[in-house]
Nucleic acid binder design. Sequence first.
DNA 1: GAGGCGATTGGCT
DNA 2: GCCAATCGCCTCG
Length: 199
Amino acid sequence: MDPTTADLQAFCNRDAVSVARALIGWDLKVDGAGGVIVETEAYTADDPASHSFSGMRKSNASMWLAPGTSYVYRIYGLHFCLNVVCAHAGAVLIRALEPRHGVECMQDRRGNSRLDAIASGPGKLCQALGIDLRLDGCSLSEPPFALSPQSHEGQRVISEVVSSPRIGISRNMDAPWRFSLAGSRYLSRKASFSAAPGV
DNA sequence: GAGGCGATTGGCT
DNA sequence: GCCAATCGCCTCG
């Protein structure tokens, strides 16, 4: 069962670090294509690496919308990244998915890339799911988005969520706010260490 | 108004 | 491992 908008808003209305850890194992779809979230990163408003750190701009205004809203931005002029808005202008970057739904469609968009490379990185993930700036500032609990905890499916052992430093940033580089599903083949990179404070 | 750079990716050495 | 692609926005003058 998919959470209502109110449910999702309540779930996301916490600090981004908690939400980033909790989203591992959730199912994300855009127009029916998607899969299980296996890698996230947290960005809080008092974090120098966060886009919200230096205040609201036209391009990051979605970070101040309701928790559970999408924040999509363009990076390096050519790729897009998808975030989930959390409390207090925090956000969770969705970095990698394990493909489950609409795999052929995602492969088409990605140029028939290998299964474990369809969405193994924030830019690849957006390309595979057809996400661009038109989907900035939308509710993640309403079409075309669908975001829900993976119900049953039997075996999804919440085996191990591990944390490590975030990737690609130049400020606050030590904060271990990248979360990933231990041992997944679908990550953008292997976790560099397995310590997961608070997990 | 010019210059620099980024929460990335893919191709080449 | 190194580097180009590509562009909106920030910083400085």
